[in-house]
């Protein structure tokens, strides 16, 4: 199991921040997922070993957090917030628009592996609603047209 040097550096440093090893687990899982794409059996086994946990204990934590996934996702994960502030400003329509545009539903992935789509809960962009995150990037004050442009940009980036 090989992670990047940056991952290893951060992991080693974070271990010094806490009195117990397992405290690094949640952020480390997210960093590992960012590199590998998802939390594979191999990643889980590796991190469990490093933190003196069983694989099951790690899986137990993964299943709690909504951002963590044990299944591969598209290169760009489109997360449309449909919670109240976004809903009032057209988030349901925006989500439906994304479904049509990408041809996939909630938690689906396009056949080319470029996009995944997810309906998510409040992402903290209420005053700039409706909003979506593509991976970690925020896109705010969206309309279906603006969303098209955002998705086209990512498509260009992903196929270059």
């Amino acid at each position: 199991m090989k992670f990047s040097d940056q991952f290893e550096q951060r992991f080693t440093e974070m271990l010094t921040h806490y009195p117990t090893k397992r405290s690094v687990l949640v952020p480390t899982l997210l960093f590992a997922q960012d590199e590998i794409g998802f939390l594979s059996d191999e990643v889980i086994h590796e991190l469990a070993g490093r933190l003196d946990l069983t694989d099951l204990e790690v899986r137990n934590v993964i299943s709690y957090y909504s951002m963590l996934t044990t299944k591969p996702r598209g290169k760009f994960n489109v997360q449309v917030c449909t919670n109240i502030a976004c809903m009032l400003r057209g988030a349901d329509e925006l989500f439906e628009h994304c479904e049509k545009k990408l041809g996939i539903g909630h938690k689906g992935t396009t056949p080319d592996g470029l996009f995944s789509l997810e309906e998510v809960e409040c992402i903290g962009a209420c005053s700039w609603a409706p909003a979506a995150q593509v991976n970690y990037d925020f896109h705010e004050n969206l309309t279906p047209d603006k969303m098209d442009r955002v998705l086209d940009e990512y498509k260009k980036k992903g196929t270059q």
């Binding site: 397992r22 405290s23 949640v26 899982l29 934590v61 709690y64 957090y65 909504s66 963590l68």
Partner: peptide, 20 residues
């Protein structure tokens, strides 16, 4: 850092999350 959970904003759940 967290990994997506509203519940963790509750103070005792926050501590659990920080403890991994």
């Amino acid at each position: 850092g967290g990994a997506g959970a509203y519940e963790v904003g509750e103070e005792s759940a926050l501590m659990e999350s920080l403890e991994g």
